[in-house]
Design a protein around this nucleic acid. Structure first.
Lengths: 164, 164
DNA sequence: TATTGTTATACTCTATAACTATA
DNA sequence: TATAGTTATAGAGTATAACAATA
């Protein structure tokens, strides 16, 4: 991101008298900036494991839900089915998960994690959790609770919106 | 998004016994989902005004910072300068903002909002604020405060990360 | 030499239409 | 007829390199 690489940091922006007061009052704007930060940060964290955010979350879902169908996975992660296919292709080619034909419905695949996939899952999850802890480490218990509570509330907004 | 259009909502997912427990513990995952919701929702809200999130935030920054340079704008919004150019092109072609040569530095442009731009700004900001209020309306005062506090904390994380 | 704005380009992410094979 | 998975493709959004004009 531009800001991260730029020599103009927050303090400099203030010296330049650039104001983002209006935008910083908007939850949608703040959450987008925060999300972008988490995302780019996490991407860097997962890069050594050759995982992206989407391949990581897919791997997690397959581990947690052995035999899940591609369509269920796509729906659970809010990914379009065609895009889900290439993600699963990638994980399958790396022998992290496998497609298994469902006998009772020969259109569908049941997705299972391989031993290698499970190992990478453990490693990746630990890294991601450590990364989140590091980011939240600057804040006291009350602040952490506020963040987690708000995240749950926002997730609730999300789910309510889905159930419209 | 898939979920929004799908007939499989949260309840159905639970009936299917699909678990996202691991992912829903991750702040980064939750904030990404929430951000996507806000974003797609806001995009729909701004569509009648022919504004996208990025053109809206650019318009706001120009209104709040008359005479801002493109490079300052790009930095404040964490947008790469080349991408900023086309955004400003779009707003200038719609006569919402104007590029004015800076006499003291003939490389730079000072950006100013036009009367039409200021009108659209007011309209768009009111719509966005109403949209945010509607989304937060289901929550009580304490919950709202938690969300806003957490958003500010996350923004702090963001800015600290920028200042690394 | 460095910076502002610009062009061209490429890469990722996301979205849609249409196909196949099964149900 | 409808669904699961697939293919191809198109559109955002984002990133980098290289250039002209100016400092």
């Amino acid at each position: 991101m531009a800001s991260a690489n730029s020599k103009f940091d927050r303090t400099t922006l203030q010296l330049m008298q650039i104001s983002d007061d209006t935008l910083s009052e908007l939850v949608g704007y703040n959450i987008k900036r925060a999300s972008n930060l988490f995302q780019s940060d996490l991407a860097r964290t997962l890069k050594p494991l050759k995982l992206r955010m989407i391949t990581f979350t897919t791997l997690v879902m397959v581990v947690d839900n052995p035999g899940i169908r591609q369509s269920q996975l796509a729906d659970a992660l809010s990914v379009e089915r065609p895009n889900c296919v290439v993600i699963i292709d990638e994980l399958e080619q790396r022998k992290l998960i496998s497609r298994i034909r469902v006998p009772t419905d020969r259109r569908a695949y049941a997705l299972k994690v391989t031993p290698a996939g499970r190992q990478l899952y453990k490693k990746a999850l630990a890294i991601v959790q450590a990364h989140e802890n590091a980011l939240l480490d600057d804040f006291n218990d009350k602040q952490r609770t506020q963040i987690n509570t708000a995240m749950r509330l926002i997730r609730t907004i999300h789910l309510r919106s889905q159930n419209l």
